[in-house]
Computed example of a mutant assay.
Amino acid sequence: MSKRDYYEVLGVGKSAGERDIKKAYKKLAMKYHPDRTQGDKSLEEKFKEIQEAYEVLTDTRKRAAYDQYGHAGVDPNRGAGGFGGGGGADFGDIFGDVFGDIFGGGRGGSRQSRARQGADLRYNLEMTLEEAVRGKDVEIRVPTLVECDTCDGSGAKKGSSPTTCPTCKGNGQVQMRQGFFAVQQSCPTCSGKGQIISDPCSPCRGQGRIEKTKTLSVKVPAGVDTGDRIRLSGEGEAGENGAPAGDLYVQVHVRDHDIFTRDGNNLFCEVPLSFSTAALGGEIEVPTLDGKVKLKITPETQTGKMFRMRSKGVKSVRTGAVGDLICKVVLETPVNLSSKQKAILQEFDASITGSAAKHSPKEKGFFDGVKKFFDDLTN
């Protein structure tokens, strides 16, 4: 009897990826697995057909041969000409392979037996604004787990070595079957490591790692800001049984500054301005991170006006572009006036009374608006 096309058996197209093939197989296996068909021989043969199609189409070599030569390319009876079919495989083996990813592993599952990479670590680094803008080399002390020098990370006493776990045969997992399902669990004998240490190393007590505080030099580039991270590859915790170490991430936090506020590459600051300079104009000194500079104030400057000083901000750590310094002037009311000073101000005030439209346009506009508001209420 001629065999059906494997793609047709699984109900997938010839361009289907492995994920689609597995998905189709799971659906059919749930329906036709012998545990669910109550010994129906015809359905059992159908399941074998489904199983054979799956085994061929998920094997790269077999699938290539099948696509080129059809069933003859995977016929085990054709010797070197074929790559072997899938009719003789055990139901449980292939079924465990497909469903193993759901329950933590699959056939030949050695994922847990492989030594695990060390954990990544984080170090919070506080800096002043000046340090962040200019960059700095800093030394940090990081408590971590490092590879034991005595046993070179194996966990076994010098001169001895770990042995393969007899329970899981080094896989780190054991399989438990309950009817239709196969469940992978961490081996209870070796705790998933796949190896047993009969004679543990004394300094690390068989763990292969010891606690130590490392001193590291960190080059902080100019222009970093709060939230930026500096990655130190391999400076995290040592891995288990000689596996690679994790990474250390230095998290930057820039402290608040007494004068400047940072927004991206720009700096902001408030500059107090005297009444006379605001009215007449002039020059004032303003601070920058590189020292004091002169800022020209135009006559009749109002409080809150922003003055932009180009390229006096922060150089970007990523693009190299330099931001600006933006100065907000805040008019400062004179205090502790003498009698003479008060008299001068009173005389000045009298000289402009009645000419608000000319000297205080905002004041006139405001009170005109207030008058209209109340007029509208009474009408």
Rank of each mutant, 00 (worst) to 15 (best):
L267V: 02
L267P: 12
F268E: 03
C269H: 09
C269T: 13
C269Y: 08
E270S: 10
E270W: 06
E270C: 01
E270T: 10
V271E: 11
V271D: 02
P272G: 13
L273K: 05
S274E: 14
S274F: 02
S274V: 04
S274N: 15
A278N: 04
A278C: 09
A279P: 00
A279N: 05
G281S: 07
G281E: 01
G281M: 03
G282L: 01
G282R: 02
G282V: 01
E283G: 00
E283A: 03
E285V: 14
E285W: 07
V286A: 13
V286E: 07
P287Q: 13
T288A: 05
T288K: 09
L289C: 03
D290R: 11
G291E: 07
G291K: 06
G291T: 05
K292A: 13
K292W: 13
K292H: 06
V293I: 15
V293G: 08
L295G: 03
I297M: 04
T298W: 01
P299L: 08
P299H: 05
P299G: 02
E300K: 15
E300Q: 14
K305W: 04
K305Q: 15
M306F: 10
F307T: 02
F307I: 05
F307M: 04
R308D: 00
R308C: 00
R308P: 00
M309F: 04
M309P: 09
R310G: 09
S311N: 14
S311Q: 10
K312M: 15
K312C: 11
K312W: 10
G313A: 02
G313Y: 03
K315L: 05
K315C: 03
R318I: 11
T319Q: 12
A321M: 09
V322G: 08
V322M: 10
G323T: 03
D324K: 06
D324L: 06
L325T: 05
L325D: 05
I326K: 09
I326E: 04
K328Y: 07
K328N: 10
K328G: 04
K328P: 08
V329K: 08
V329Q: 08
T333S: 13
T333Y: 10
V335D: 13
L337C: 10
S338F: 13
S338L: 03
S339Q: 09
K340I: 14
K340P: 00
K342T: 07
K342S: 05
A343C: 00
I344K: 10
I344N: 01
L345F: 06
L345S: 06
L345Q: 12
L345I: 09
Q346V: 08
Q346D: 07
Q346C: 07
Q346T: 09
E347Y: 04
F348Q: 05
F348A: 15
D349Y: 07
D349H: 01
A350E: 08
A350K: 14
S351R: 08
I352C: 03
I352M: 10
T353C: 07
G354P: 11
G354E: 04
S355E: 12
S355T: 05
S355G: 05
A356V: 08
A357M: 02
